[in-house]
Amino acid sequence: MADVLIRRPAAPLLLLAIGAALLVPLFFPLDQSAVALGRVALPPSFTHPGGTDDLGRDVLHRSIYGLRVSLLVGVVAALAATVIGGLVGGLAGMLGGWVDRVLMRIVDTIAALPHLLLGIFIVAMLRPSLGAVVLSIGLTHWLSTARIVRSELLSLRTRTFIDAAVAGGASRTRVLTRHLLPHVVPKIALATTLMIPHAVWHETSLSFLGLGLPPHMASLGNMINDGQRSLLTGSWWASLVPGLVIVVVTLAIAALAARWRDRLDPRVRAELNL
């Protein structure tokens, strides 16, 4: 048991983080705008395991609330990006021809712009809110999914087993559902999973820049941003704790996704005896 925790800590750590994000608010609700000026900048202790920030707020408590926001934004934004990318890539890959050329030139054009700047531009046009952040990340991160889906479909469509299916009487729908989608869907799901940590990181960046969520709201980016002030007065924990939460959670998701990717290959799967 202890051995597993050390060699493969990703799943237990992620479970711990998700468990905390789900359960803590039930038992220890947080008043987002409360301050306690009597206990400002206390270092980590038994009563405040993550210390308190320059407004006397418990850093660990707020980090857990921030993680909720980050995971929500990360998952929803990754799903939004997948839907857009899947549709664009699917159309390009299935229809080919000029549809493919036009769509892929649009993808290339958007890809040529720095996506953080584009994301900042999109949130700046809207009022800071959860929805704006999700929209900004979703609209800037569908490109890789579109490319994956398109290239996968294009290469699958020319495979002989598709010819064999057509010769065997399969309809277009049958070819799509039986022979194309089963090959593409695991890759899309994997791309989505790999995108979650990236989207979480983006939410944090936007909030850190003051463009994400309203400043009083506990989000990991806001907290790291607020913590900058405390760094100068020596209270390092105000930035470190939310920073650690984000690093651990995103690395855990990425590690699990990478392990899953290895299992997708049928040959590897055979060797793993699954």
């Binding site: 495979r159 002989t160 087993f161 064999a164 010769a167 065997g168 009487g169 039986r178 049928p266």
Partner: peptide, 21 residues
């Protein structure tokens, strides 16, 4: 489909003509 299936095809590469899944 009823016309297509009147013709059977056996391709050169069994590897390429079988859906690996």
């Amino acid at each position: 489909a009823s016309v297509r299936t009147r013709i059977g095809v056996l391709f050169q590469s069994p590897r390429a003509s079988a859906d690996p899944r």
